[in-house]
Design a protein around this nucleic acid. Structure first.
Lengths: 159, 159
DNA sequence: CACCCTAAGTCTCGTTGACAGACCCAGCAA
DNA sequence: TTGCTGGGTCTGTCAACGAGACTTAGGGTG
């Protein structure tokens, strides 16, 4: 058996990564979030841009509203009836760090030679925004191998 | 129409978020990555901990190897034949910022009252590691609403 | 030698979800 | 009255998921 990993001792059933992925892990969730983060808030705009099938988009949006990540807001274009658009809730805005991290990873490994079609900037100063890892002692983590996982306060042993 | 969002002009078909999600967006991908980041590298250990069905785990691992996020490494326990375990590649290690960001979000919104079962620490100093957003001008982004999306160098207009 | 054990898979089969394409419906406008 | 538009629903097909049984390679045990 030669040094089994310590993590085997700990249960995984209250893991917040797992719970987060129940919401974020559906195939189109992040694409929808990217759209909304880009200011695309209306059903048909998203559908036309992304080619997500209607039914799937309907389901995904409903699920995200249900989960509390999005909310439905009424709007009315002049000479049209009241419709609804989708906006980020507080919980949704707090996904920005995740979106930025995914974008950064995608840009590094999956972009076309011309570069990324999308960037994130600081609204006030216009400079590009990046996700960085930093420890509470103030060290900036430059190599991800410096990060290690540990059981947290809510960890409990497996049956 | 009242001020359609600018993003509607831009094509989405070379978007790196979309491409990243073709790899990361499958239902169990992140859970697998969390396991491996926790040092759980063997098929059956993952299976027992996560309850992912065998077939799905096989597929997911194969897909991640194919995508270049994981690699298969031979190992041999004393008195057993050679088997294979799964490890992060460089590309996989670079997903740590994403994992940390997801964990942080999950901890904030989805944790049990006792807290998160998992934390990330700086290997050298032991202090907790967090994901933060910062712009290139050195400003730390404290409120995610300060972040805005812009077309990047690879952006091109929609047909 | 025959038999058992374990890790890491396949195989089978019923259920769920994705996807495509047609259809629907409320309200405004011509 | 008819048509347009946004935001859906309905239907049918096909791939993926999930549960459970079976398989396989090598090593150990009697």
């Amino acid at each position: 058996m030669s040094a089994r990993p310590e993590a085997l001792e700990w249960s995984v059933d209250n893991c917040t990564v797992g719970r987060a992925m129940e919401i974020l892990g559906e195939r189109w969730t992040f694409v929808v979030l990217r759209e909304i983060a880009n200011g695309i808030r209306r059903f048909d705009d998203m559908r036309v841009r992304t080619n997500i099938p209607r039914q799937v988009l309907t389901n995904r949006l409903a699920m995200l509203v249900e989960a509390g990540v999005l909310r439905k807001e009424p709007y009315q274009d002049p000479g049209a009836r009241v419709r609804h658009e989708y906006r980020l809730t507080e919980m949704g805005f707090d996904l920005w760090p995740v979106i930025v991290a995914v974008l950064q990873w995608g840009d590094r490994y999956l972009a076309d030679p011309e570069g990324s079609p999308l960037s994130t900037v600081h609204r006030d100063c216009g400079a590009p925004v990046r996700s960085v890892l930093r420890c509470d002692a103030g060290h900036e983590v430059t190599n991800p191998r410096e990060v290690a996982a540990r059981p947290g306060p809510g960890a409990h042993r497996r049956s």
